[in-house]
Computed example of a mutant assay.
Amino acid sequence: MGQSRSPLGVADLERLAARGWRAPEEEPLGGWLMRAGGGFTGRANTALVAGDPGCPLPEAVEAVAAWYRARGLRPGAQLPGVQARRADAAFAAAGWDRDEDVLVLTAPLVAGPDGGVPVELAGTPDDGWLSTSGYLRRAEPATARAVLTNAPEVVFASVRADPPPAPPVAVARGVVTGDWLGVTAVAVAEEHRRRGLATAVMAAVTRWGAARGAGWVYLQVTSSNAPARALYRRAGFVEHHRYHYRWAPS
């Protein structure tokens, strides 16, 4: 993958990524997007702060808080890039807690090579996939699947060391939105790391995305995940922008 600069700005890329990780319930607040997905993942249960909410920022913060509390969820906001600084200050003034930075990385899409590791591709994640990804620790399977499969073109990649019902030892999710491939949920069982399995599932997902016309790829990684950041840097990804979450006081 080369080092060309992404053709999308921060707000447009975040809106595209939101279409690739869609919550079952969404409602706009001006240019912001409030999302609820049963508490499964920050991306599906926070307000995407991109654009003008159509009202003064303190009122927008209160509207977000009320929307999530009405659904029994802790109010949260996703604040991407420098364009969200004024809104971030408003959430901070209301006492909302800040999480660590998440890096959004992009690269021109080049289909990865077939390195000889058998990778299974499926249209839905089974319980083994959810277990390896870690999502079974965060939500009931039905809640997780409602978010993970809520896209027109989505794939779930798995590498297995043993036949089912043994869980996979490496997994990844891919979603094509327009001409972009989003790669998420790359995970490898601890005892199988440093064997090239993350590279294998990513290569399979990029081949799948390229076959569907995607020309660019994005992914997200927390700033504290040094091994993953090194893997993606070697694969040619560059930082596009960062975002963080804010959460209302409990």
Results as ranks from 00 to 15, higher is better:
Ala189Leu: 09
Arg212Lys: 01
Thr46Asn: 15
Pro249Trp: 00
Thr222Val: 15
Ala63His: 10
Val119Gly: 05
Asp99Lys: 12
Val169Tyr: 01
Trp32Cys: 04
Ala18Val: 08
Ala122Pro: 05
Gly178Gln: 00
Ala189Ile: 03
Asp114Phe: 00
Arg69Asn: 10
Leu73His: 07
Glu191Tyr: 00
Glu14Cys: 00
Val82Ala: 15
Leu148Gln: 07
Pro75Asn: 11
Ala47Val: 14
Glu239Trp: 02
Tyr218Ile: 03
Gly54Asp: 12
Thr132Ala: 10
Ser4Met: 12
Thr199Cys: 03
Asp88Cys: 08
Val10Met: 06
Arg193Ser: 11
Val64Leu: 09
Gly30Trp: 01
Leu105Lys: 05
Ala210Trp: 03
Ala65Gly: 15
Leu105His: 03
Ala94Tyr: 05
Ala111His: 09
Pro163Cys: 10
Ala214Leu: 01
Arg246Asp: 05
Asp88Lys: 06
Ala36Tyr: 01
Val102Phe: 08
Gly51Ala: 12
Trp129Asp: 10
Gly178Asn: 02
Asp88Met: 08
Thr184Met: 09
Asp126Cys: 08
Thr177Gln: 13
Pro164Glu: 14
Val201Ile: 09
Arg69Trp: 11
Ser6Val: 02
Ser158Phe: 02
Leu105Arg: 10
Val205Trp: 00
His192Tyr: 13
Leu73Trp: 07
Val10Arg: 04
Trp247Leu: 14
Gly116Pro: 03
His240Leu: 04
Ala93Thr: 07
Arg71Ser: 05
Phe237Met: 12
Leu8Phe: 05
Ala18Arg: 06
Ala144His: 09
Ala248Ile: 08
Asp12Tyr: 05
Arg234Leu: 14
Leu29Arg: 06
Ala92Met: 05
Pro113Cys: 02
Trp32Leu: 04
Pro168Gly: 05
Pro56Arg: 00
Ala146His: 08
Val154Ala: 15
Gly51Thr: 08
Ala151Met: 03
Trp21Arg: 10
Val183Gly: 01
Ala11Arg: 13
Arg145Asn: 11
Leu231Phe: 09
Arg193Lys: 02
Asp99Trp: 12
Cys55Leu: 15
Phe91Arg: 03
Gly182Arg: 03
Pro167Arg: 10
Leu57Pro: 08
Arg233Asn: 05
Ala146Val: 02
Trp96Phe: 13
Val159Glu: 07
Gly39Lys: 06
Met1Val: 14
Thr222Ala: 15
Arg246Asn: 10
Pro168Ile: 08
His244Arg: 14
Ala111Cys: 02
Leu33Arg: 13
Glu25Arg: 14
Val175Arg: 12
Ala161Phe: 11
Pro113Val: 13
His192Leu: 03
Ala93Tyr: 09
Gly72Met: 04
Arg35Leu: 02
Pro56Cys: 03
Pro80Phe: 01
Ser6His: 12
Ser158Asn: 09
Arg229Leu: 15
Gly39Tyr: 09
Asn45Glu: 04
Arg137Leu: 14
Arg35Tyr: 00
Ala172Trp: 01
